[in-house]
């Protein structure tokens, strides 16, 4: 028998109007955008975008790849050396100083991670321009291509070395931490050397990342899936996004089930 005073039903009732409003609003916005794209003759825009993409792949990406390791070093080294100097002067007690040093090392680690991702993106962009037909004026020079490839490899090397330095600096500040960046089981060993509070922080950060990933996948699907009506990129991009989305959801659900069982412990 349905109970109208059931708190679960009441909570759903309270949240439902906003959910319906957002869903209907999204549908109306999508319809308006779709009609607008048809009237704006977006096929011409798609051709322009395609040409711009090829130009970037053949001429832009190689140069950016060659510049990337220098930019990464220019951004990270001053911060790293500043943290290192601060650590040499640190008395082991000053909390503000230790927070500052940890912030600097974290910022550097973020820069190296983003540089690696950008490196992979630019390399993929360059590879996509490789299959241009011969005689096409858009085709880039082999020097550019191999220069870009070299930049890709150098950035990977620079990122690995920088991350090793940053992790080593973190370990000097926190001697209980274990794990080498070059170890394939680095994340496992590092996690094992983290205590309860650090694991709680990692857990919260991971959940925020999971939420951001899920939202990003939804937005990307909307752009890539619906954009397939106007651009000639097929369904592969949308499929890739759905695979990533599915992996994230499955891993999350699997660990929720596993940790919920008796004896479940990370």
């Amino acid at each position: 028998m349905k109970n109208n005073n059931d708190p679960i039903r009441q909570e759903n009732k309270r949240a439902l109007p906003k959910f319906v409003l957002i869903s209907v609003g999204g549908m109306i916005l999508g319809a308006v955008l779709g009609v607008a794209l048809v009237f704006l003759n977006v096929e011409n825009f798609a051709d322009t975008l395609d040409s711009a993409g090829r130009l970037f792949a053949v001429h832009g990406a190689p140069w950016l790849l060659m510049a990337l390791p220098l930019v990464e070093l220019a951004l990270c080294l001053p911060i790293y050396f500043s943290a290192k100097k601060q650590f040499a002067r640190w008395d082991g007690e000053d909390e503000n100083a230790s927070n500052e040093m940890e912030t600097k090392l974290s910022v550097c680690l973020w820069i190296t991670s983003m540089a690696t991702i950008l490196d992979f993106f630019l390399a993929a962009a360059q590879f996509s321009g490789f299959i241009e037909m011969e005689g096409n004026p858009m085709r880039g020079s082999p020097i550019n291509f191999f220069g870009g490839l070299g930049g890709f490899l150098v950035t990977l090397y620079v990122s690995a070395v920088l991350q090793q330095k940053l992790v080593d600096a973190t370990k000097r500040m926190n001697p209980e931490k274990h794990g080498s960046v070059y170890d394939t089981k680095f994340h496992k060993k590092w996690m094992e050397s983290c205590d309860e509070a650090e694991r709680a922080v990692i857990g919260q950060c991971a959940f925020k990342a999971y939420q951001a990933m899920s939202m990003s996948c939804l937005i990307l699907w909307a752009v890539l899936g619906l954009g397939g009506m106007f651009f000639s990129w097929g369904f592969m991009p949308a499929m890739t996004v759905c695979i990533i989305w599915g992996v994230g959801q499955t891993v999350y659900s699997y660990w929720c089930l596993k940790l919920g069982k008796p004896g479940g412990k990370m």
Binding site: S98, D195, A197, E198
Partner: peptide
């Protein structure tokens, strides 16, 4: 932190 088997950050937190 060393005596308790946890990190300096945890004591600070």
């Amino acid at each position: 932190g060393r005596m308790a088997g946890v990190s300096r950050q945890t004591i600070s937190l």
